[in-house]
Design a protein around this nucleic acid. Structure first.
Length: 262
DNA sequence: ATGGCGTTCCTTGAACGA
């Protein structure tokens, strides 16, 4: 079973590239982030014609997540409030960043973690608050359900220095500051393993490159898109790769897809 | 470098991303 995650930076702008990629890779499940479209305007038909079932949670202009699956999924849920008390979730479901579904006994959680703007900004506080609730959310799922978990998406955090082309100044940099790294680590301490790092130890492997500085040409990237697995799935994993081919195309997303083969 | 690029919107520049 192949599961992929890809921040497409607008599904309407990237539709043709995603179609081509699905035809080439034939993944069983594709988790998308930053679809940037309300559900009623999501371009469903070409993906459905390819044989995928679509589960989407979008909003106007910003954020938005989706799960495409070759097999029908069960127990599809949107947002933290599907699991946690609404009082605890507060305003955190207003931005569409969480969708979950079960495929072939695997509970897939697809996340678009807030970017955080800059360290110690209001949005940074929101990111940390969001990661705290994410921990509670995953903790509840692990306690109350017996599913194996695949937690994937755009985390907007490079956990280690080898995940950044140049870690100089990282303490003050969004996506690498110690507090947000610790917040993610605390989520992973629930018992999740990084599928990519099971197979690849070297630095220089990235999933995002800034549009603005021709960063891709010099491979000045960050590894911020992740696939995390509970122990049994982690042990089962056969491969986990980042496909940089779509990043080479004209008008690409700034992120590349990550694929795990279970 | 409050910089560079790309996407969205009741657009004509601003907000946001990372």
């Amino acid at each position: 079973m192949k599961i992929a995650t890809w921040n497409v930076n607008s599904i309407r702008s990237r539709q043709a590239q995603v179609i081509d990629w699905l035809q080439r890779t034939q993944v069983d499940v594709l988790c998308l982030q930053e679809t940037k479209v309300v559900d009623a305007q999501f371009p469903r038909s070409l993906f459905e014609e390819l044989g995928y079932y679509l589960y989407i949670s979008g909003q106007k202009s910003y954020n938005g997540v989706a799960i495409f699956s070759r097999k029908p999924a069960t127990d599809v849920s949107m947002g933290f409030a599907a699991v946690l008390d609404t009082a605890q979730v507060g305003d955190l479901d207003e931005q569409k960043r969480v969708i979950s579904a079960t495929v072939d006994g695997v509970r897939i959680v697809n996340l678009y973690v807030p970017n955080g703007a800059s360290v110690n900004s209001e949005k940074y506080d929101y990111k940390l608050r969001w990661l705290k609730i994410l921990r509670d959310y995953l903790h509840s799922i692990l306690e109350e359900q017996s599913h194996e978990l695949c937690v994937c998406g755009d985390f907007n955090i490079a956990l280690e220095d080898r995940d950044i082309h140049n870690p100089k100044g990282k303490e003050k940099h969004i996506m690498a500051s110690p507090v947000e790294r610790q917040a993610l680590q605390s989520v992973l301490d629930l018992g999740l393993g990084d599928a990519f790092r099971k197979f690849t130890k070297e630095g220089g492997n990235f999933s995002w490159w800034d549009y603005r500085t021709r960063a891709f040409r010099g491979n000045r990237g960050w590894r911020i898109d992740h696939i995390y697995l509970t122990p049994n799935l982690y042990n089962q994993a056969i491969s986990c790769t980042i496909d940089i081919e779509p990043r080479k195309l004209d008008k690409p997303s700034d992120h590349s897809p990550v694929i795990v083969n279970l």
